[in-house]
């Protein structure tokens, strides 16, 4: 059986146990404080240290795509060890990561790399890594894996209840967030990432209402194939949210994930989120 390896950017938030189990190869993306460039590799950039610095540092961090050479290094090593690579990235509309993967794949031999734009990030991308990993374990071919991922993408939703709109506004990636300013500071947006588009699904003024709205959205989306509860330095909130959704837990294991600092730059601390894969309704003639 030809060996297949997964190469993915570090915004996928796949928990370490799955990274080990599927031998996932992560390409770090970058957070910059001024001229200081920190790789999102868990060493240069740790979750704890990052949020402390985010609060204290007058410099607002920015995020940056990795160099094509950085992707090539990881990808080339994977191609040394395997016959084929499934490469997954955050959406090309939201980041330059996809393009650097594309350049690397072209250099190394596009016929041995299947590049898939994940259309999502955090565990919205991460669930695709997990599914690809499971399919590789089961002996699937690259084309089948690609088809399964593309088929799965319309079922993927990521919601997040942010503690403040401040970081999203500064990130520059979401136009409506830039517009929504004025006298009221305490506005907590609830956002939805679907097919590479970030939209607002609600504005609340207390964390509890954000929590309730997330739970509500998840319930409406049930039944679920996969469920990940995401947070940015808000483990207690994430555990409470997971508990509140116990009745709609899918059979697959639940993931409780602290989002990468690269996403933290854009959403800020004390955020809560969900990354779900809806169960595809079996085709019975209806379009549910």
């Amino acid at each position: 059986m030809p060996r297949i390896l997964i190469v993915v950017d570090s915004t996928c938030d796949v928990p370490p146990e799955w990274v080990r189990r599927f031998d996932v190869r992560l390409v770090p993306t970058y957070v910059h404080f001024g001229m200081e460039s920190l790789a999102d590799d868990g060493v240069q950039l740790t979750r704890q240290g990052f949020y402390e610095r985010l609060a204290a540092d007058p410099l607002h961090p920015t995020t940056a795509a990795p160099p094509p050479g950085g992707v090539m290094e990881v990808m080339a090593r994977a191609l040394d060890e395997a016959e084929h690579v499934i490469a997954l990235t955050a959406p090309k509309e939201l980041s330059g990561i996809y393009n650097t993967f594309r350049l690397a794949a072209e250099k190394l031999g596009p016929e041995r790399v299947t590049l898939v734009d994940g259309r999502s990030t955090s565990m919205g991308l991460g669930w695709q890594v997990v599914v690809a990993g499971e399919m590789i374990e089961a002996g699937a071919a690259p084309d089948d894996i690609e088809a399964a991922l593309l088929d799965m993408q319309p079922q993927i939703h990521v919601w997040a209840a942010l503690d403040t709109i401040h970081y999203l506004r500064r990130s520059g990636r979401v136009g409506w967030a830039t517009a929504m300013v004025g006298g009221l500071f305490q506005i907590k947006p609830v956002i939805h990432l679907y097919n590479a588009v970030v939209e607002s699904v609600g504005r609340v003024r207390t964390a509890q209402r954000g929590f309730d709205l997330l739970a509500d959205l998840a319930r409406k989306a049930a039944p679920l194939d996969r469920l990940a509860v995401l947070h940015t330095v808000n483990l207690a909130g994430a555990q409470r949210l997971a508990e509140a959704l116990k009745d709609i837990w899918p059979e697959a294991p639940l993931a409780l994930v602290e989002a990468t600092p690269v996403l933290g730059v854009h959403v800020g601390p004390n955020g809560l989120g969900l990354a779900i894969v809806k169960r595809r309704q079996q085709d019975t003639g209806s379009t549910g």
Binding site: Y30, H32, S37, A64, A65, P66, P67, P68, G69, G70, M72, E73, G96, N99, T100, L103
Partner: peptide
């Protein structure tokens, strides 16, 4: 060129490396 390829950052850095 190799240094740029290995050390570029962001979109504009990628293009500069190219």
């Amino acid at each position: 060129a190799h240094g740029a390829m290995m050390g570029s950052r962001g979109n504009s850095g990628t293009i500069l490396s190219q």
